[in-house]
Amino acid sequence: MSGRLSRLRGPNNEGLLVAVILVVVVAMALSSPAFFTAGTFFALVRSSMVPLIFALGVLMVLISGGIDVSFPAIAIFAAYSTVKWVIGAGADPGPWVIIAIAMLVGAVLGLVNGVVIARFRLPTLIVTLGTQSIFKGVLISYIGSVYISAADLPDSVNALAGSHLLDVSGGGYLHFMIVPVVVVAVLVALLLSRTIFGRSIYAIGGDTEAARRVGIDVVRTQVWLYVLVGALAAFGGMLYVILGRNANPQSIVGTELDIIAAVVLGGASIFGGRGSVLGTVLGVVLVQLINNNLVLLGIPSTWQRAAVGILLLLGVGAQALGARRPNGHSVDVEPPLEREEVAA
């Protein structure tokens, strides 16, 4: 691959993603004039908000070399229990305090993940599979299983749910919550690229033993990472409650694979050490674009999941090709051979 081409492609396939998104957009616009409207655009933004927040958490965990499937359980646990508690107490401290409390709850649940993973050095997938079931079980059996509708939500939450940043005549609006979502995305990007904590996460994902050897406190970094990811998941959960104007303890759980797919599509490596916020945003947007608008291309909506699956395979394929790109050096010479040989 020529130097310019690989530069366009970006360090994490961002360029490629932009190209794919453009192709999809053009295809949709050509096949349906209804597509190219502010309404479609705002709907896309709105449906991307919650997945993006979750995806940012997944991104950080993937970079550190782990995989987290417990974030939906943390999200709904934190959001539902906080909302229920606030309603039960008969108080309405305002949406931001409620969000803050939920994030605290999420942080505590994240701490559980972090401690088990870092102290006992257990595989992250297994640990989070376990904690996911535990969190969900505790939520349903001890906290509540009753659907909370808009009528019962605190007034301040309902007010926030109805606040628009921008209204467009002829339908469509930009939801106010896009502001905190963008802020969070920027903060995560800065955290990952500009802080020692963020760089340590990349280092741990690149080579955990080497990270220890340069003096990174791997256990502490991992624990903090999962605390942060827990808080982020809780924010996503609250966002879900606010946008949907309901709190349903059965919701969210089950969406984890779509989110992980979007992040991997966004160039994060499943082996750790690589990934960017920009790529993740693009990955989420692409998946939502397909989920929302595939019908416009005349493809039945039942094919949505298959389309996401195909995209995921393409994304991972691009990663594998990238890893094998000839670079004039004798790096990774043998593994491909041996993989073939062993498979033979």
Partner: peptide, 26 residues
């Protein structure tokens, strides 16, 4: 014991950044 996913510069300097107990990476 290097980080394959990080740049040469960062591999060289990360250790001193950590030893100085810095928080912001420049």
């Amino acid at each position: 014991s290097l980080f394959p996913n990080l740049s040469a510069a960062e591999n060289i300097a990360m250790l001193s950044e950590l030893a100085d107990r810095r928080r912001i990476s420049s």
